[in-house]
């Protein structure tokens, strides 16, 4: 059917889905634990297809997130750029890690992502709570094996059908 190496439908739909999931209304306490969907999909695509998705993808998605959440224009873009850079720089190593080690790298990258957001908020003088900031990192890491498994499965199915 579609060759996963040139297919745009799957990546594009994951990007749109990630953007939508990051603004879907959730009740108060659950919203604190909303995973960082956008950096998660950026990490996935930058690791499995670094020659197609990289810094520009990360920046555009970041700008879209900035517009959606009404944050400072460039705040999420900067955080995604850092995550994208780390992925591209180390994708050869991360790709061959076992799942738990991969999750640790994702933990590190999500923590860096939240730190950049936190740092920009602080520099711009916006008041934000401190502890709740780290909850999405935890849920993000717990979701990572699921995202990895699902997307890998879909891509393999597509490849088999070509």
């Amino acid at each position: 059917m579609r060759d996963p190496d040139t297919d745009w439908v799957l990546p594009l739909s994951t990007f749109v889905l990630a953007l939508a999931l990051s603004v879907v209304p959730l009740p108060g306490v659950v919203a604190t634990f909303r995973p960082d969907w956008i950096p998660l999909v950026i990490i996935y695509w930058a690791i499995v297809a670094p020659e197609r998705f990289g810094l520009l993808t990360a920046m555009w998605l970041g700008l879209a997130a900035d517009t959606l959440t009404g944050s400072l224009l460039g705040q999420h873009a900067l955080a995604m750029l850092v995550v994208g850079y780390l992925c591209l720089r180390f994708h050869l190593r991360i790709r061959i890690f076992p799942v738990w080690q991969m999750s640790m790298s994702v933990l590190f990258m999500l923590a860096v992502y939240e730190f950049v957001l936190f740092w920009v908020d602080g520099a711009a003088g916006r008041t934000v709570p401190y502890v709740e900031r780290w909850a999405p990192v935890i849920t993000g890491v717990l979701l990572w094996p699921l995202i990895l498994g699902t997307l890998d499965r879909i891509r393999q199915d597509n490849k088999a059908r070509v």
Partner: peptide, 15 residues
Amino acid sequence: FLLLTVFSLSLMLVD
């Protein structure tokens, strides 16, 4: 990475 970082930083400054 450096160029895009500078770009988004300046976006933030202006914004």
